[in-house]
Simulated scan of single mutants.
Amino acid sequence: MCFQRKFLAVPESDLVVAGTGHSGFINGWFQHLQANYGRATIDELDAYASSIFRESVQAEGGLSGLTATIYHFGYSTQEERYIGYAYRSEQNFRSDRIQQDALGFKPVVPVTLNGNIRFPDSLIEIILEQQRQDRLLPLAERVGIGGEIEFVVMSERTIHVETVHRFSSYEAESIHIEQRTDA
């Protein structure tokens, strides 16, 4: 058990990278990106990300039965606006352009947003419901939603990250993690 941030802000590239699923794969991409492509734009990354993901999974012999999705959000110098891509293991990491002005979240939960979406409050509502649904699952099937919620805004070629919520279980989980690392 540990707290894990599953996104990386890369301000020098006006890029945010996020992931769901296999944490080792996600962290591996974060490290590889920072070490080798720290100044690459979203347009440049899209040209070779799919092949890097496929080669990485093949070299490791698969994802151990898990799935992974990597998301790239950034400013396209070619289009002169912010765009996004998803690379899903279930689709062999094919580059999939994310629909503009869309709201997506994973895991999917039944949340009705009444057209009056307010950020970050609506985001917090969704994630609290994700945590509630996750806790109903058997322990082996849980994804483990907790810690803190960080809200990322990309605008006018800047990236702003703000912690907007701390789960009520944060302190107890933090103590548990510390006790495990001390042992």
Results as ranks from 00 to 15, higher is better:
Glu60Gln: 14
Pro107His: 03
Val108Gly: 00
Glu90Met: 09
Thr41Ala: 10
Leu33Arg: 14
Gln91Trp: 12
Ser56Asn: 10
Leu63Gly: 06
Asp46Trp: 11
Ser95Arg: 15
Tyr82His: 14
Ser89Asp: 09
Thr112Ala: 11
Thr77Leu: 09
Ala40Phe: 05
Arg54Glu: 05
Arg54Val: 03
Phe53Ile: 04
Pro107Gln: 00
Tyr75Ile: 03
Ile52Gly: 08
Thr41Trp: 06
Val108Arg: 01
Arg54Gln: 08
Thr112Val: 11
Asn92Ser: 08
Leu63Asn: 01
Ser56Ala: 11
Arg54Trp: 04
Ser51Gln: 09
Lys106Val: 06
Gln91Val: 12
Pro107Thr: 02
Gln58Gly: 10
Ala49Ile: 12
Ser50Phe: 02
Ser95Glu: 09
Ala59Lys: 08
Ala102His: 08
Asn116Arg: 08
Tyr87His: 15
Ala86Ile: 10
Ile42Thr: 10
Leu45Arg: 06
Ser56Leu: 11
Gly74Leu: 00
Arg39Leu: 10
Gln78Phe: 15
Gln99Gly: 07
Val109Gln: 01
Gln91Thr: 11
Ala49Asp: 08
Ile52Tyr: 13
Pro107Phe: 00
Ala102Phe: 06
Ser76Trp: 05
Asp46Ala: 11
Arg94Glu: 15
Tyr75Gln: 04
Gln99Ser: 11
Leu66Val: 10
Arg81Leu: 01
Asn116Trp: 05
Leu113Met: 12
Gly84Phe: 01
Pro110Leu: 11
Tyr85Asp: 07
Gly115Ile: 02
Tyr48Met: 13
Asn116Gly: 06
Tyr37Ala: 13
Thr112Leu: 12
Thr112Cys: 12
Arg97Trp: 07
Phe105Lys: 00
Asp46Val: 07
Leu113Gly: 04
Ala47Cys: 10
Tyr82Gly: 07
Leu45Phe: 07
Ser56Lys: 06
Ala102Gly: 06
Leu103Gly: 00
Phe73Pro: 01
Asp96Cys: 13
Pro110Asp: 14
Leu113Glu: 06
Thr41Gln: 11
Thr112Glu: 12
Glu55Lys: 08
Gly115Glu: 03
Ser64Phe: 11
Arg54Leu: 08
Ala47Glu: 13
Asn92His: 08
Ile42Ala: 05
Gly61Ile: 01
Ser50Trp: 07
Ile98Lys: 02
Tyr82Met: 05
Phe73Cys: 05
Ala47Val: 13
Leu45Lys: 03
Gly65His: 02
Gln91Ala: 14
Asp46Asn: 15
Asp46Lys: 13
Asn114Gly: 06
Ala35Ser: 13
Gly74Lys: 01
Arg39Gly: 10
Thr69Ala: 08
Thr41Asp: 11
Gln58Trp: 09
Gly84Val: 00
Gln58Thr: 08
Asn114Leu: 14
Val109Glu: 00
Ser64Glu: 15
Ser89Gly: 06
Glu44Asn: 07
Pro110Tyr: 13
